[in-house]
Computed example of a mutant assay.
Amino acid sequence: MIELQNIKKGFGDKEILKGVSAVMESGKVNLIIGASGSGKTVMMKCIVGLIKVDSGAIRYDNQDFTAMDDREKKEIRQQIGMLFQGSALFDSMTVEQNVMFPLEMFGTGTLKEKKKRVEECLERVQLKDAAKKFPAEISGGMKKRVGIARAIVLNPRYLFCDEPNSGLDPQTSLLIDQLIKELTVEYNITTVINTHDMNTVMESGDHIVYMYQGQKQWEGSNKDIVFSKDQKLNDFIFASEFLREAKEMRQLDMFKDKNWRDQLGKPGNQ
């Protein structure tokens, strides 16, 4: 897991993160959501070490990442997979070569072993037949899947995704969400996703952190969010009349589930 302990970050006289604490759990899809300017992007950059926090601690499985030297941080970073918003593939490389890139940089083993690992990852994202194609020859959804294959090729313990559904049609977005969810559970990865996609929130959000003006405003699951009384959260998630009606329908469906009703009635779930 990844634990944030009262992290703060500012630029000049502007305070961006105002003492955020949260736990990103392993084997679950952890979402960071919030409006533009809420601090979610800065928070993700702090977690992976692209930005240094002003105070507080970030712990990877109880190891204080913020207190590590460069060598120790490199060891943690080798356990991290990244899926970038625009896929960030190398145009001059084939799909196979793009997925091979992290293995060439950090991997060990023979060329034959590396190629076998690349083939396994491409097969897992159903792109084995596209191995020799260049990024310009495949669709946006396929590029995202190549990005996922590259992100998991080193068997990461942590996976970070920045707007994984950006620029994709709704059907392809669902497929990407499902794939990330399956890989998270299959490999027991701590997955952290920065997203605006409400379908991702409602379908994949095992654990959600809602950021508002640099602070953690709300924390819970996609089931909790349906019954949340936090007005700022509801205004953000269920902004349109259509989404408000969808929320009411989801509430009715969930109330039919006795196990969920019993859970909702427990202390602390009011």
Score class of each variant (00 low, 15 high):
E25Y: 08
K144H: 12
Y158M: 04
V20L: 08
M43T: 03
F238T: 10
Y210Q: 08
N259V: 05
S139C: 14
M211D: 04
S221I: 10
K143A: 11
V185H: 09
K258Q: 13
M100C: 01
V153S: 05
A131K: 13
N98F: 06
V226W: 08
M93R: 03
R77W: 10
I33L: 03
M68V: 03
N98T: 05
C46T: 04
N6D: 15
F160S: 10
E75L: 06
P135K: 07
V153Q: 04
K144P: 01
S92G: 00
Y158V: 03
S38P: 02
A149H: 05
V146Q: 02
A22G: 01
A67P: 01
M44G: 06
G81M: 04
R59D: 00
Q78D: 01
R59T: 00
K73D: 00
G19M: 02
V23D: 07
R157S: 13
E245K: 14
S38T: 01
A35H: 09
K18A: 06
M44V: 14
L252Q: 15
E96V: 08
K223M: 14
Q85D: 05
G140W: 09
K144S: 12
L159W: 08
L252T: 13
P164D: 11
M254S: 06
I189E: 05
K143F: 05
Y187K: 07
T195W: 02
I189L: 11
V42I: 07
T195D: 03
E186W: 03
V118R: 12
A57R: 12
R150K: 10
E186K: 13
D177R: 15
Y210S: 08
D257F: 10
T66Q: 03
K232L: 11
I189T: 12
N6I: 04
V95A: 07
T191A: 14
D257E: 13
Q270E: 15
Q217K: 14
D206W: 01
R261L: 14
R77K: 12
M202H: 12
A67R: 11
P135V: 10
E203C: 02
K256R: 14
L31D: 01
M93N: 01
K216P: 00
F134G: 01
E120Q: 14
S173W: 07
W218P: 04
R150C: 03
K115P: 04
M82K: 09
I180C: 05
I237A: 05
S139V: 15
E96C: 07
S139T: 15
S204P: 06
N259S: 11
Q171C: 02
L233P: 11
G12E: 05
V48K: 08
R59H: 03
D69S: 05
K229A: 15
F238Y: 15
L179Y: 09
E137L: 09
G27S: 08
N234V: 13
R77V: 01
S221P: 09
G107R: 07
S204T: 07
R71D: 02
E182M: 03
S87G: 05
M105P: 00
V185L: 07
H196S: 06
F160K: 07
F84T: 06
N165S: 15
N199Q: 12
Q217P: 01
G167I: 10
Y212I: 03
D169N: 13
I189Y: 02
